[in-house]
């Protein structure tokens, strides 16, 4: 690693921190621009109670003071404040409750999607224009153009309602199978297409021809020579894939009733629990930004041909 690489990494990290700060700021001021405040419900509470509640949650201060306090809480103690609708629970509690399930769900989906996507993509590239290639491409095209919530409900309908193989509820044993499949299908299809095209590209390179000419066996060419270089574009997709899985998990957790962050987020939108909306948005956004950062740096480190600006 030379100074140029280091400088790039430092710049990229600074941009990521700046982005997270922007997200926090936008989220905070957007949530506070909602007219009526969080305690406007079906019936107006008496003035004294309302004032007491606003004082308790610090809502009687000016937006500027509240913002500084909120930011300070996040930076120093990683504290997102109390939940407004779930009494006596903090946003941190709710998020850490859902974190384990959501992480398990997301990591399994990402792992399956990457593994199967690479295998299918390689198979399709090696059997180019044969039946199996066509078959894989038709299916991946179909998966790419189907929204995750529709895929989820269709899977629910087929494997849970009709066949009864898996439970429809994510809290039961085996309940995570369908959500994982739902989340994995789109990125899997995308990775398949990505691997196929980059593998085809690599297989046309001179060094592959050289390897063939000196008598290297077929599988060795694939795994020893072609695979490494054709996986570089796949690496760039890791960040976007994670973003997709995070947003996809919002609806998937809603459909399958999985007790994760996504469900908490969707519920917080409908119940207008502002601190929870802010907390989950910021954490999920920070997750995506950090993953994009890691992907970008890895990408530049793995492929030395890539120029630094």
């Amino acid at each position: 690693m030379n100074t140029k690489t280091l400088w790039y990494i430092v710049k990229r990290i600074l941009l990521a921190i700046f982005t997270i700060w922007i997200v926090i700021t936008i989220t905070f001021f957007v949530m506070h621009a909602v007219p009526g405040g969080p305690f406007v419900g079906e019936k107006e509470p008496p003035k004294a109670i309302k004032q007491a509640m606003e004082a308790k949650y610090g809502l009687d201060k000016s937006p500027g003071e509240q913002y500084v306090e909120y930011l300070k809480g996040i930076v120093t103690e990683f504290d997102f404040g109390p939940s407004l609708k779930k009494k006596g629970r903090s946003v941190n509690d709710i998020i850490s409750d859902g974190m384990e399930t959501s992480l398990k769900l997301g990591l399994m989906a990402a792992g399956i999607a990457t593994l199967l996507g690479i295998v299918f993509g390689a198979v399709a590239a090696l059997r180019r224009n044969k039946f199996i290639d066509r078959f894989i491409m038709v299916f991946t095209t179909a998966f790419v153009s189907m929204p995750s919530f529709i895929m989820g409900t269709l899977l629910l309908l087929i494997f849970s309602q009709s066949l009864g193989w898996f439970p429809a509820n994510g809290t039961k044993a085996g309940g995570l199978v369908l959500p994982v499949i739902t989340l994995a299908l789109y990125p899997m299809a995308y990775i398949t297409r990505l691997t196929r095209s980059s593998m085809l590209d690599v297989l046309g390179q001179d060094y592959i021809r050289t390897a063939k000419a000196k008598g290297v066996s077929g599988p060795r060419i694939i795994f020893g020579h072609a695979m490494k270089n054709s996986l570089i574009p796949v690496l760039t997709y890791v960040g976007p894939m994670l973003a997709y899985i995070v947003t996809g998990s919002l609806v998937v957790e809603k459909i399958f009733n999985v007790p994760g962050i996504g469900r908490a987020f969707v519920n917080s939108i409908t119940s207008r629990d502002y601190p929870l909306i802010m907390g989950t948005t910021i954490i999920l956004a920070a997750l995506i930004v950090v993953m994009n950062l890691i992907t970008d740096i890895l990408y530049k480190v793995v492929d030395p041909r890539i120029q630094f600006e």
Binding site: A16, V23, I26, V34, T247, A285, I288, N292
Partner: peptide, 23 residues
């Protein structure tokens, strides 16, 4: 543009539409 580009779009979309719907 760089900053907006690096924002997680879907989360921001959800947040903004949830708020705009109210206001």
């Amino acid at each position: 543009v760089d900053v907006i580009y690096s924002l997680p779009d879907m989360l921001m979309v959800i947040l903004l539409s949830a708020v705009l719907k109210q206001s």
